[in-house]
Design a protein around this nucleic acid. Structure first.
Lengths: 210, 210
DNA sequence: ATAGAAAACAAGCGCCCGTTTGTTTTTATA
DNA sequence: TATAAAAACAAACGGGCGCTTGTTTTCTAT
């Protein structure tokens, strides 16, 4: 097995096991067995168990930050920016479902400086959402909106996704985003005027949950 | 220390530590030290560590089920039922924030039959939400609504609450529910006609998160 | 083909885990 | 106040934990 490859294999394997059994519920022997080597051999490639967790969560944080940065920099209407932001978020989760699970579920198992760094990136991310919403409110496009709770709503939806999303589900990321955004923009009671989806029928069951 | 009291103290302490450090990250010695007794003495009151986790999560599940059952049985409009359901959910989380944290974050650490039982109650709970939304859609009150995603939205908001809610926050449960429901019923773009709150001003910062 | 580097092995370190056992102390009841 | 039950202690069990060390095997580049 090549040099860099084994390191990545260990990370992927750890990510898989952490997402399934949790960080503290996964042992180095679990990881080594899944990789087909002995536990001690892992330490040729990594320095510690916590290093694995940090690498996984930090990569996750970077993915979220980078994808949202593009949205913030874009020049679109507030509503469109919100859609793009939610789309970016959901895409990161959907395309890295195991890493996202570890990111959301296990990052607090980090200790000391490492944890602070991840916390910092989470704060940065939240700040970017704040910015998008604040712009929309100040420009009047999102009149009368409680920015704080709008943000909590959006992040709740995006962050909870890892709990139910299954990669082999019937709906694409775009279809999921469309359904959420329709409700978020116009509400349970509002009309969906001016919005059209290629698959916009109202079907109660479109099962994607596990 | 009395008979039943010590058992409850152990449960409360375990709940606190599980919510902070996770189930696998908490040791029996952690719990015993916080209770001021030796680790072995715990076993006068409990049978195993997993028993503690099961008791906590099962009580949580019962709280959610009971509070929502009352809403399902009530005779209200669909929109009002949704509000009451979200209120019930948020109230359970807010009034038992540590237990809720363990319930949402650690229930998968249960094994075998115990885990299946909690899963079953979670399914029951979701079914009750489905029922409320289905009634509202079939009666026409929630016209054109994608019930599946409306439910995901509501449960995302309710389930993510444990991640940011602080008991010493400035807003009451009712105020939180009002803010979420306003957005959920009328959307980011819609008018909030016919709705009035005693504290309905639009302030961007109403900090409640940690 | 062979020297040097990288990777994996084999063994085990010290420590902590959940739990058990046998004894002592505390509590409740008569 | 005597007595039995309940609770807590003291000590340790078997085992698994993250990780290290010293050696052997495998790969890579000349």
């Amino acid at each position: 097995m090549g040099k860099v490859k084994r390191k990545e294999e260990i990370l992927t394997t750890a990510c898989h096991l952490f997402s399934q059994k949790g960080y503290h519920g996964t042992t180095m022997r679990d990881i080594s067995e899944a990789c087909g080597i002995l536990a001690g051999s892992l330490y040729t490639h990594i320095r510690s168990k916590e290093d694995l967790l940090y690498e996984i969560t930090d990569r996750g944080a970077q993915s979220f930050l980078q994808s949202l940065q593009q949205v913030v920099n874009s020049e679109k209407s507030a509503a469109e920016k919100l859609r793009l932001a939610l789309r970016a978020h959901i895409q990161v989760v959907a395309e890295n479902i195991e890493a996202a699970t570890v990111f959301f579920h296990e990052w607090k198992a980090l200790t000391g400086e490492r944890r602070k760094q991840i916390q910092k990136k989470r704060d940065q991310y939240e700040l970017m959402w704040k910015q998008i919403l604040l712009e929309g409110i100040q420009s009047g496009e999102l009149h009368d909106l409680d920015g704080k709770f709008a943000r909590l709503l959006l992040l709740s939806v995006g962050n909870w996704l890892y709990q139910w999303y299954k990669p082999d589900g019937k709906l694409s990321v775009d279809e999921i985003v469309d359904r959420f955004m329709t409700i978020l923009l116009y509400g349970f009671l509002g009309q969906k005027e001016g919005i059209h989806f290629e698959s916009g029928r109202n079907v109660y069951e479109t099962d994607q949950t596990g």
